[in-house]
């Protein structure tokens, strides 16, 4: 039984939510306080679990009644068997990983489909800051200074598409978001966040 569509305030969550089929098995890597997982469990009857590094966030997940593992996503996938999940979500976590390529390929091993959400480092505001102001950009989605950023990887939506091509990953869908609205035109310039629905090409 699935409940009627919920009010989801974050557009990235809303779009990911719409991609995921009811009653599927979901792993959310970097699940934060478990908001998205809770929506999915409540309204789409998914069997969901999460991995999160932040202890305070884990406590919130447990309070929501979620099943979660406290740990590092860079190594968190070793625990799972092949095609264990229908979807693996990597939203806003890829850019903070030490080994993003390995993690995505591992995610494609344990999940039939993988959803990746990344901040677009080549959004026009970022380009303006680099080009005219000569400084490393600080934007809404990338709010950190160079010395305190948790982000280790800086990439554009185009970079990510290329990564998929090189690694035999099929992009089944792409959604582009800026300031809580969908972007249809020139996403690599105007989108702040890119969401990708992926599948291993051979499968």
């Amino acid at each position: 039984m699935t409940n009627p569509s919920p009010e989801i305030f974050r557009l990235d969550h809303k779009n990911i939510f719409d991609w995921i089929e009811s009653n599927s098995r979901v792993l959310d890597l970097g699940c934060g306080d478990g908001e998205l997982l809770s929506h999915l469990i409540e309204h789409k009857a998914v069997k969901g679990t999460g991995v999160e590094i932040d202890e305070a966030a884990i406590y919130k997940c447990i309070a929501r009644g979620l099943t979660v593992s406290h740990g590092n996503i860079d190594t968190g996938l070793d625990d799972y068997s092949t095609k264990r999940f229908d979807y693996v979500i990597l939203n806003e976590s890829l850019q903070q990983m030490l080994h993003p390529q390995r993690v995505i390929l591992e995610a494609l091993r344990v999940g039939k489909k993988v959803i990746v959400g990344i901040p677009n480092f080549c959004h026009w505001r970022a380009r303006v800051q680099i080009f005219f102001r000569g400084k490393v950009p600080v934007t809404k989605e990338l709010p950190f200074e160079w010395y305190d950023t948790p982000n280790l990887r800086f990439l554009s939506l185009k970079d990510f598409r290329r990564f998929c091509r090189v690694n035999d990953i099929t992009i089944l869908g792409q959604k582009n978001i800026a300031l809580n609205q969908r972007i249809l035109l020139k996403p690599n310039v105007f989108a702040r966040i890119g969401l990708f629905l992926l599948q291993k090409s051979s499968s």
């Binding site: 406290h70 740990g71 799972y80 068997s81």
Partner: peptide
């Protein structure tokens, strides 16, 4: 404890793991 959790997950057992600081 992590080894335990891994073995539990290998059996598809519902397990939450927390490492309290």
């Amino acid at each position: 404890s992590k080894e335990m959790v891994k073995a539990l997950k290998a059996n598809d057992i519902d397990v939450s793991y927390v490492e309290v600081k």
